[in-house]
Simulated assay, not measured.
Amino acid sequence: MADTTTVTPGGGSSPAPGNRRDKSSGRVRTRGLPDWSIPYVLLVPGLLVIAGLLLYPMFQLGVMAFQRVGLAQVRGTRPAEWVGLENFERVLGNEIFWSALRNTVVFAFVAVSLTLIVGTAVGVLLHRLGKKMSLFVVIGCMFAWAVPPVAQGVIWRSLFDAEAGIVNWALNLLPDWLAAPPDGQPSWTGTPWLNDTPGLYTALVVCVVWAGFPFIAVSVLAGLKGIPTELYEAARVDGSGPWRTFRKITLPLLKPVFAVLTVLSIIWDFKVFSQLYVLMNGPTNRDGFNLSMYAVAEAFRPPQKLGTGAAISVVLTIILLVVTVVYVRQIVKQEEM
Rank of each mutant, 00 (worst) to 15 (best):
G212S: 01
T245S: 15
L261W: 00
I318M: 12
V41T: 00
L47K: 03
L55W: 15
T250N: 08
V106E: 12
S14T: 15
V122N: 04
R128F: 05
G184Y: 03
I38S: 09
Y232A: 02
L321S: 08
L101V: 06
G46C: 03
L85A: 13
M64E: 14
G93C: 10
L126V: 07
L116S: 08
D183R: 14
T8R: 11
L200S: 04
V28Q: 02
M293G: 13
R75S: 11
Q334M: 12
V278R: 00
G26A: 05
D22Y: 09
T189P: 00
F97P: 01
F270D: 05
M58H: 02
L126W: 07
I312G: 01
L135S: 14
A222K: 09
S292G: 14
L251M: 15
I38N: 06
E163A: 07
A203R: 14
T5R: 07
G184V: 09
K333W: 08
T324N: 02
K305V: 11
D176Y: 01
S187G: 04
L174Y: 10
G241N: 05
V147I: 15
F215K: 08
V150Y: 09
I249E: 00
L48C: 04
L71N: 10
G140P: 07
T4R: 03
V137T: 04
T245C: 15
L251R: 13
S240E: 01
G62T: 00
V41M: 00
G76E: 13
Y327H: 06
M337I: 10
P186C: 01
L126H: 07
L174T: 01
W268P: 01
T115M: 14
I166L: 15
V218C: 02
I166D: 05
I96D: 04
A170E: 04
Y56E: 10
P303K: 08
G140K: 06
F109S: 12
K248V: 08
A310I: 02
I249C: 02
A310R: 12
V323W: 09
K225P: 04
S13M: 05
R236F: 05
N285M: 10
H127Y: 08
K271S: 10
L48V: 12
L221N: 05
I249F: 04
I227W: 06
M142T: 13
I155D: 06
L253F: 03
L135W: 13
V147Q: 00
A299L: 10
V118K: 07
R31Q: 15
T245W: 01
V105L: 13
P57L: 00
A164S: 08
K255H: 06
V74E: 03
T8A: 06
A297Y: 08
R236V: 08
V74P: 06
